[in-house]
Nucleic acid binder design. Structure first.
Length: 715
DNA sequence: TGGGAGTGCTTTTTT
DNA sequence: AGCACTCCCA
């Protein structure tokens, strides 16, 4: 018990040992928020204020949930297996599985990941003969998801013109299609669960009485629906403990609403707001820089990080001639650091957008520095794995048209677009799934389709008594997937991944077997595994070895920390991103929070780099340094000497001379425009009447202006 | 059926 | 530039 609370600083201790009240913990970067959250749970349980059964702990990522579970198990002897610790989606799934009838879902309902969802929407548009120029699938998907995240069903959605009405109809059609197929997308998982609790009073009461303490991590990232869901569950007197940092809210673009924090303060926490401001991660200069940056945002809940670690090193700034030059510099520094004994996995190269990783990777590769890139394809998202899962899904639920279409002709078995069109027409007539339509046609229509149906039926029978791993293996072999990749040139890696899928199934049974047997029964193993695959798409695919430099976007760096951090591409239009600047004040503030997150990742040393020219979308852009660079206190900065431009043996120079625009202007010059105000010329193109210049007007954004018409005065 | 050419897009991303 | 996607031909 005293062990439990040892080494907590006073605010941490206060937060952990708060009596049963609602509370908001404003936890700055590196202030030990996960520690506070887990210790709070451990303290509540070990002081018998709540049973493990009465705790609901919610996170955003599976990784965070796992970490919390592991830490809790290390703190107190408790069986975390049966506890409700998980992600919003995972917990909603659990609730919906347990009460699928009340939620009007089949026991075997499957979860669509984003790619599946997009596919389902494309298919819907095709079936309804909708012009996808007028209704781009991606846009429709965003429309549907954002409505669901606001808790708005198609029936309640507003539409003021015929186009918007049509869009709402398509939303409704999509809902019908999912319902018919027994599939549920990510947003639906939450919305359906919320509706279930809202409408079903006995169930609601049951859970409201059960959960006495609700604890939420990364509260600043919740959307409206998630907050509503939490409030509903807390409605029976549970104590609501939210931990978050409004300054690290960087997911507004996907529906997160920082306003939830302010609302929560008003509706729940009241006076119980505790600030964790002591930072245990970074040296003083880094923290001072972070504080100075974030200070420029308005409407913050307010927080000032401090440390007793000492000032540490100055922040190094490097101005490169080009993106290549920047990469060269970064990699050279990395090599030097590694020589000086810094572990490579303690060095992070951060960038605003993924496209920027290419130059860095190229340079790292060229110099033989091991590196690891985060982001990209994950295990359960790989095509061969998705194919295999589609067979399994079809065995578990023949109504799943998404799965059907994915593998009906994979490996190719002579079922072309024509037979599929017929099949879809039949399915439409019968108002049934493609699978059932195909089954009813078997005999008269194409034998190929019939053979496919027989294949699935056979697989279902043959695998009926098998354990999950054997089942997967059997399906891989008999479906022809393995054979297909064995003959393919580039199939080796895919075969390995399919092997890995069998292992994943075995591991899954070992890890989850007990829980599953309780919740789903023996036959539920397949469904549970498929759910696992959708909900937890697997580790990011990344290079092996922990002695590798870490490359990632600033977004994916949230929650991580490194001894040395390089923030690259600090150019206006890139970071802050042009699109964000165009969104105005809100957009710029989110970019600033992103900058804050980036800076606070560093423990000992921070580099800031920018390049005068950069290849972007196949064109060289002439850049202006990021406005954020001016927001750093200049006395904290150490400007590194720029090495003379270097030309390689091949004669290639690492920086390019900017083409000068006409009219006595030059790149980098400040000009004044009657409407947009003060700006800096960023690039130029064309001659004579075509001559245009690109000008960065700061808040007014980036503009291309034709010299002949634009009235520009040197400023 | 599969590949090659042509077209268009391009911020961030978890579940 | 690079990638995903579509379309058309052998």
């Amino acid at each position: 018990m005293s062990d439990l609370l040892a080494h907590l600083n006073p605010p941490q201790l206060q937060a952990v040992t708060l009596p049963p009240v609602h509370a908001l913990i404003l936890a700055g970067a590196g202030s030990g928020k996960t520690r506070v959250l887990t210790t709070r749970i451990a303290w509540l349980i070990s002081t018998s204020q709540v049973s493990p059964h009465g705790v609901l702990a919610v996170t955003f990522t599976n990784k965070a949930a796992k970490e919390m579970t592991a830490r809790l198990a290390a703190l107190i002897p408790v069986n975390t297996r049966g506890m409700w610790i998980g992600t919003f989606h995972g917990l909603c799934n659990r609730l919906l599985r347990a009460h699928h009838r009340e939620a009007n879902l089949p026991a075997t309902f499957q979860i669509l990941d984003s790619a599946d969802q997009l596919g389902a929407i494309k298919r819907l548009l095709k079936n309804l003969n909708v012009d996808d120029e007028k209704f781009p699938p991606r846009e429709l998907m965003n429309f549907i998801n954002s409505h669901k995240e606001e808790g708005v069903r198609a029936a309640q959605a507003q539409a003021f013109d015929t186009w918007a009405q049509r869009r709402v109809e398509l939303y409704a059609e999509y809902e019908r299609q999912c319902q018919r197929e027994g599939v549920v997308d990510f947003a639906e998982l939450l919305l359906r669960c919320h509706e279930l609790l809202l409408r079903n009073e006995p169930l609601r009461q049951h859970y409201q009485e059960r959960f006495r303490h609700i604890l939420v991590d990364e509260f600043q990232d919740t959307n409206r629906l998630q907050y509503a869901w939490l409030k509903l569950l807390a409605g029976g007197g549970a104590k609501f403990f939210a931990v978050g940092d409004d300054d690290q809210s960087i997911y507004a673009f996907r529906g997160a609403d920082v306003g939830n924090m302010r609302d929560f303060e008003g509706e729940f926490a009241g006076p119980n707001v505790i600030r964790l401001e002591q930072n245990y991660r970074s040296h003083g200069n880094i923290l001072a820089a972070a504080n100075a940056i974030i200070k420029n945002n308005r409407g913050r809940l307010g927080k000032n990080l401090w440390t007793d670690a000492g000032e540490g090193e100055p922040i190094r700034v490097f101005e490169a001639y080009s993106d290549l030059d920047e990469a060269r510099f970064v990699v050279e520094e990395v090599r030097e650091l590694a020589r000086d004994g810094v572990a490579r996995n303690q060095i992070a190269l951060l960038y605003r957008s993924n496209a920027q990783s290419r130059v860095l990777e190229h340079e790292l590769f060229g110099r033989g520095v091991p590196y690891r890139v985060y982001g990209g394809l994950r295990f359960f998202e790989r095509q061969e794995v998705k194919h295999a899962l589609a067979y399994l899904r079809l065995i578990g639920n023949p109504e799943d048209d998404t799965a059907f279409l994915r593998v009906v002709n994979f490996p190719t078995r002579g079922i072309g677009a024509r037979s599929l069109e017929n099949l879809q027409a039949t399915a439409h007539q019968l108002n049934s799934s493609l699978y059932n339509a195909a089954a009813s046609l078997t005999g008269k229509a194409g034998t190929a389709v019939g053979a496919f149906i027989r294949l699935i039926e056979t697989l279902r029978q043959e695998t009926g008594g098998l354990r999950l791993p054997e089942m997967v293996e059997h399906v891989l072999e008999k479906s022809g997937i393995l054979q297909h990749y064995r003959t393919e040139k580039e199939g080796q890696e895919r075969l390995e991944n399919l092997d890995e899928l069998i292992n994943a199934a075995a591991t899954f049974i070992d890890d989850e077997g007990v829980v599953m047997a309780e919740e789903a029964g023996e036959s539920g193993a397949l469904v549970a595994f498929l759910t696992h695959a959708s909900l937890e798409s697997g580790e990011h695919q990344a290079g092996e070895g922990d002695e590798a430099v870490q490359l990632m976007t600033v977004h994916s760096a949230k929650g991580l920390e490194f001894d040395v951090v390089f923030i690259t591409g600090l150019e206006q239009g890139l970071f802050p991103h042009e699109n964000a600047v165009l969104e105005g004040h809100t957009g710029l503030e989110e970019e600033r929070r992103l900058m804050y997150v980036a800076v606070t990742r560093a423990r000992q040393r921070l580099y800031l780099a920018w390049a005068q020219t950069r290849m972007l979308h196949g064109q060289t852009r002439y850049a202006v340094p990021s406005s954020f660079l001016d927001e750093f206190p200049q006395e904290l900065l150490l400007r590194l000497n720029r090495p003379a431009p270097v030309s390689t043996g091949s004669g290639r120079v690492y920086y390019a001379a900017a083409p000068e625009p006409e009219g006595g202007l030059r790149i980098g010059q400040s000009v004044h425009h009657a409407k947009f105000g003060l700006g800096v010329i960023v690039s130029a193109e064309g001659r004579g009447a075509d001559a245009r210049v690109q000008i960065n007007f700061g808040a007014a954004g980036m503009k291309w202006l034709v010299l002949e018409y634009a009235k520009l005065d040197p400023a």
